[in-house]
Design a binder for these strands. Structure first.
Lengths: 103, 103
DNA sequence: CGGGATCCGATTCGATACTG
DNA sequence: CAGTATCGAATCGGATCCCG
């Protein structure tokens, strides 16, 4: 499936409309190949719209569809939990460090 | 990440406590390798507990931790949306078929 | 019963180079 | 600017065999 979809959608939700390189900058670590591939999938699933301006230099805008917007609560919840999970993982690691120190 | 985690957690949520083969039967298509691997990950992330009974034949029970239970609303939402998404995909396919028929 | 170990093909992904 | 094309590395995942 790809781990980036969440991030892409989360960014598109915050910013409404974004250009390709704008998305790329907003998501550190993603390659243009991945970004393209996942955007194509999202577009194919009618979650994202791709709007091409016939001009030079090229301009392509991405935004969520109305259907895609129905994901909003889910995305928000996932993001919340993701943050908690990150903290939780940190705590787990610290506990493991302590055990090793005491052993 | 693995596509099975959601299913595993969903089953564990419904049934509270499940044995290995019980989970395997409940999730058609999963191999024991995948089930084992994902359960280990979930265990490592403190989302699932693994309880081993020292007896023959072996008995191992899996259940969600309290922390893992915090995923409940998220899992429910994901499941809901997953079903809607399936319907939506069917509609998209039908529309595409029509276009091809008319062309 | 509940796995672990291994082999192997399929798929994913990153890096890089090129293009209208 | 917004991609496409290609290659090789890494990971995923299924099949199979084995074990206490």
């Amino acid at each position: 499936m790809g781990k980036w979809k969440h991030r892409i959608l989360f960014e598109l939700q915050k910013n409404d409309v974004m250009r390709f390189n704008e998305l790329k900058r907003a998501i550190p670590g993603i390659t243009q190949k991945m970004l393209t591939a996942q955007l194509r999938e999202l577009e194919h699933h009618d979650i994202v719209v791709r709007k091409v301006y016939a001009q030079i230099p090229p301009k392509v805008e991405y935004a969520m569809t109305e259907y895609g917007s129905s994901l909003h609560p889910l995305l928000a919840a996932m993001n919340d939990w993701g943050q908690k999970h990150a903290e939780h993982l940190k705590q787990l690691e610290e506990e493991n460090s302590l055990k090793q120190t005491n052993a």
